[in-house]
Write a protein that binds this DNA or RNA. Structure first.
Lengths: 213, 213, 213, 213
DNA sequence: TATGAATGAGCTTTCATTCAT
DNA sequence: GATGAATGAAAGCTCATTCAT
C-alpha cells in the first residue's frame, strides 16, 4: 500500500517547480517574447504539452516564475533579528552588508529584476506587486533603522530620511552592473561596499566626533 | 517641378531617420523580440519592404536605434563648461542638477537604458559600447571633479573617490523608478535631488565647517 | 457493505450509457471534429481515460451515440397499432399527427439528423444504416397506408404513391427549421400540420366528395 | 507602361477567389472544425501564410465562403420573369421546375446548405443571414404566386397559403437526399417533380374541373 | 476498472524576409 | 527606391491517445 507509486507522485509534485525553474532560465535569458516554450520544455525534460498541463498559457507561466523567485528575497532580512540595533553605524553596516551579500549571491533575484525592468510595460501589475512585496519592505526596514537612529540623536535629521532609496542606491547600482556586464567587467564588491558605507556614514553622522570604522 | 523634387528628396533623405524613430518607439515598448517590423513600418509611414532598403535586418535596425539615441546624452555635459569649478560643493551641485535634469527630460535615453538592461544578454557588444560611450564619460567627468576637489583639499580622500558610481547612484535609481513605474507613482524629483546632495556633500566634505546650502 | 457495492455496480453498469449521453450532447453541439473528448468526460462525470475503457476511440464512440439515439424513433410508430386503418383520411391524419408529435418532442432524434447531414461525407456507412433503420421503415409504413387506401379506392392512384417522401416532406422541413433556428423563430407547429394535412388530403383524395375535416 | 505587370495583378486579384473556392471544397467536405487550413492552401496552390494575407482568420474565411456561394441562388429566380403568370397551374409548374433544376445543378448551393445545418449552432448569425437572403426570398416569391392565384380564384383559399414552405417541402427534401446519399442512391428527379406537382396541383386546385397537365 | 499525467503530432496563427514589379 | 504579395519556418496552443499506477 505504501511506497509503490511514491516515485511517480514525487515526480508529479515536482513537475510544476521543474518547469518554473526551466522557464526562469529561458525567460531571463531571452525575455518574455523571446522565449520559446519548446525550449522551456526541453530544459525541464518534458514535452511542450506538459507545460500546458500545469499552466494555462505562457503569460501565467511567466507570472508563476516571477512570483516564485521574488518571494524569497525579503526572507533574507530575518537574519537581521538578533543584531543589536545600536550604535546605528554598526547596525547600518550590518544591514548594508546583508543587502550586498544577498544581492551578490542571489543571481535569481537579480535576473527577476531584469525582467521587471524589461517587461514593465507589458506587465505593469506585476511591477506594482514586485514593488509592494520586494522593494517596499526593504525600504521600510531601512527607513525604520534611520528614523530610530535619528530619534536617538545618532544621525542627523536630514532630507535623506525621507528617501531611504538614496542610502540604498549604490547597492541597487551594483545590482545593475552585475546584471548588464555579467562577468565581463571585474568588480570589487567588498571595496565598493566599503566606499558606500564610507559615504553614507559620513553623510549621515550627527557630528564630526562620530566617525565610522 | 524642381520644388516638388526637393520635397521628395528631403523626404527620401529623412526616411532612414523616420524609420529609426518609429523603431525606437516599438523596440522600447515591446522589446527586441516583441517588436514587429510591420508595426515599425506603419508608424514610419512606409511599408515593410522599405525597411529592408535601408537596413539589412532587424538586428541592424536595432543597433541603429541604440546608437542614435545614446549619442546625444554626453552632449548635454558640455553645458558644464563655463561653470567655475570651485568651490567643489557648488560645482558638484551644478553637475548633479544637470544630470537630474537630463535624466528627467530624456525619456529616450531612459528607454534606451531599459533596452540595455533587457537585451544585455542578447547584445553584449552593444552593452560594452554603451558603457564606453555613455556611462564611462559621465563617470570619468565626475571622477575628475572629485579628484581635483580632493587635491585642493575641499573634500576628503576616501574610498568613494575610486567609485564615482556611488556618488551618482541615486540619480541612476531615479532613472529606474521612472522607467518601471512610468507615471503611476508620484515622485518629487527636486526633493529627491536635495536629499541626494545633502548626503553626498555631507559625506564627502573635508571638515564640518563646509556645510552645503 | 453489500448495498454500497450494489450502488457502485449499478453506477458501473451505467457508465457507458452516461458517456454516450454526454457524447451525444457534445457531438450534436459541436460536430464530430469540434468535440473534445475531455468535455465529454467532464459532462459524464468521469475522466478522459475512462472513455477509453468502454470505447476504442472517438469514432466508435460516435457510432455508439448515433446508433443509440436513432433506435428509439421507429418504436414510436407502434402507437399506431390499434387505430382503425380506415377511412384513409383519418388514419393519415393520425399518422402525420404522430410524426409531428415525435419530431417536435424528440430533440435527440432531430440532433442525430443534424449529425447525419453534417457528417454524411465522413461516415457514409452510418448514413446508409440510418436510412435503412430510420427513414426507410417510416416511408414503408406510409407507403403501405397509401397503397391500401388506393386499393380501397379511397385515394387516387397517382405518381405520389411511388414517393411517400413527398407526403412526408413538410414534416421533414419542420424538422430542419427547428434544427437550424432553434427557438429564435416562432413556429406554429399545429397550424403547420393542419396546412400540411389540408394539402395532402385534398391532393390525394379520390373525388371531390371526400373532403377532410 | 501597359501590360507589364498585368499577369501579376490578375493573379493577385484572383487570389482571394481561388482561396475561397478551395476553402469551399474543404469546408463542405470536412466541416468547419474538421478543415485544415493547410489543405485549403494546398488546394488553392498557395502556402498557409497567403491565406492570412487575405483573411484575418479561419472564421472570416468561412464567412466569406458562405456568403459567396449563397448569393447566386436568388439570381436564378430572375429567369421566371417573362413567363406569363397565369394560369396558376402552369406558372407553379414553371416555378417548381426551375427550383428543381437549380437544386439539382447547384452542388455548391446544396453544400452550403449542409454547412448551414451542420454549423447552425456555431454560427447562428450566419443562419439568420442565410434565411433572410436565400430562403425568405424564395418563399416570398412563392407566397406571392399563391396569393395572386387565390385572388383570381384559381386555387383554394386554404391554410397552405400561410405556409408556402409546405408547397416547397418536397424540393427541399430532394435537396437533403442528394446531400446525404451523394450518388449512392439512384434518384429519378423528373418523376419526383411530377409526383410533387401532382400532389400540389390537386391539393390546391379550386374545383375538380381544373385538372393539371 | 478508473485515473490523469504525459505525450507528440498537428492545428491556427505570426512574422522576418524575399522579390517581381 | 519603394512596394506589398508571398513565403515558410516556427511559435503558441490543442487534443486524441497511451499507460503506469
Amino acid at each position: 500500500m505504501a511506497g509503490e507509486n511514491k516515485v511517480r507522485e514525487r515526480r508529479k509534485a515536482a513537475r510544476p517547480a521543474e518547469i518554473i525553474e526551466a522557464a526562469f532560465e529561458e525567460f531571463t535569458r531571452h525575455g518574455y517574447a523571446g522565449t520559446r516554450l519548446e525550449d522551456v520544455a526541453k530544459l525541464a525534460g518534458v514535452t511542450k504539452g506538459t507545460i500546458y498541463v500545469y499552466f494555462p498559457d505562457k503569460e501565467q507561466l511567466f507570472h508563476a516564475v516571477m512570483r516564485k523567485y521574488w518571494r524569497r528575497i525579503p526572507d533574507d532580512m530575518r537574519q537581521l533579528h538578533g543584531i543589536p540595533e545600536k550604535p546605528a553605524a554598526a547596525f547600518l553596516r550590518s544591514f548594508l552588508r546583508l543587502v550586498y551579500q544577498t544581492m551578490q549571491a542571489d543571481r535569481q533575484g537579480r535576473e527577476i529584476f531584469r525582467l521587471i525592468v524589461a517587461e514593465a510595460e507589458r506587465f505593469p501589475a506585476l511591477v506594482d506587486e514586485y514593488h509592494r512585496e520586494v522593494i517596499e519592505p526593504v525600504l521600510e526596514k531601512l527607513r525604520g533603522i534611520l528614523d530610530e537612529a535619528a530619534q536617538r540623536g545618532e544621525i542627523r535629521r536630514s532630507a535623506v530620511l525621507e528617501f531611504p532609496d538614496i542610502v540604498l542606491a549604490p547597492a541597487a547600482l551594483m545590482h545593475l552592473w552585475l546584471l548588464i556586464f555579467s562577468n565581463r567587467r571585474p568588480f570589487d564588491a567588498d571595496r565598493f561596499l566599503e566606499a558606500h558605507l564610507d559615504l553614507v556614514l559620513h553623510g549621515l553622522v550627527a557630528d564630526t566626533a562620530a566617525q565610522p570604522d
